[in-house]
Simulated assay, not measured.
Amino acid sequence: MTRFSPAELEAARDRLVPDVVADGLRVLFCGINPGLTTAVTGHHFARPGNRFWPVLHRSGFTPRQLAPGEQGLLPSLGLGITNVVARATAHADELTAEEYREGGRVLTAKVERLRPRWLAVVGITAYRTAFGERSAAVGPQERRIGDTRIWVLPNPSGLNAHWTLRTMADAYEELRLAAEESGSAAPRR
């Protein structure tokens, strides 16, 4: 993994990173917003220590662990990536509540257009703020966007120490199993 200088990272602040999407995906993963390493590389979840790619594999979504630079393979697996807020920051706490709410509106329009089976928001606080669902918990949600079901997953950031790699992979696997079940709105428990 290439290490970037503080100047390179700072130059990426507010940069936009293209979505990895296609119509009719099985699952559209939605991060909070791009970090600076993601903005420099143009690859989602690229910061060292982010557990998205290992968790995606351990949960059975991918046949092997992909590197961030291989994100273009995701649509062929029925998967995609977008963000609640498009602009890159060093930390998610730099975002305002209004940015989250506007991001929720933009995300809703995107989901209506792309029609994934599931929208998986990776971060409970991002989901609660973007959609005004203050009591939401990790797991499947009652809210839908058209026919798209919503699932909230733990944030894969290495800073989210509450979730281990294994418990996070288990949570993502629940979504994978639900996404494989035709017409199922909730996982088998």
Rank of each mutant, 00 (worst) to 15 (best):
R64V: 05
G31C: 10
R3Y: 11
T62A: 13
V84W: 03
T125N: 14
E142A: 15
V55D: 02
R3C: 08
G103F: 07
S59L: 05
I150F: 08
A88R: 10
L165K: 02
A22H: 11
V121T: 11
V152N: 05
G104C: 08
N160D: 06
S135E: 13
P140S: 12
P34R: 03
R117V: 03
V152S: 11
L159M: 14
E133L: 05
A186K: 15
S182G: 14
P75N: 11
I124A: 09
D14N: 11
L177A: 12
G60I: 00
G139T: 00
N33R: 08
A88I: 00
Q65P: 02
L177N: 04
E99L: 06
L119P: 03
P68E: 01
T125W: 09
A12N: 08
T41P: 05
G35S: 11
N83H: 06
A136G: 13
V27F: 00
P54R: 02
E94S: 13
E173G: 07
T164H: 01
V138N: 09
G24V: 09
L9T: 04
Y127D: 03
T129E: 11
A126E: 05
L74I: 07
G123F: 04
F4L: 07
L107R: 04
I145T: 10
A137W: 12
L74W: 01
F52S: 00
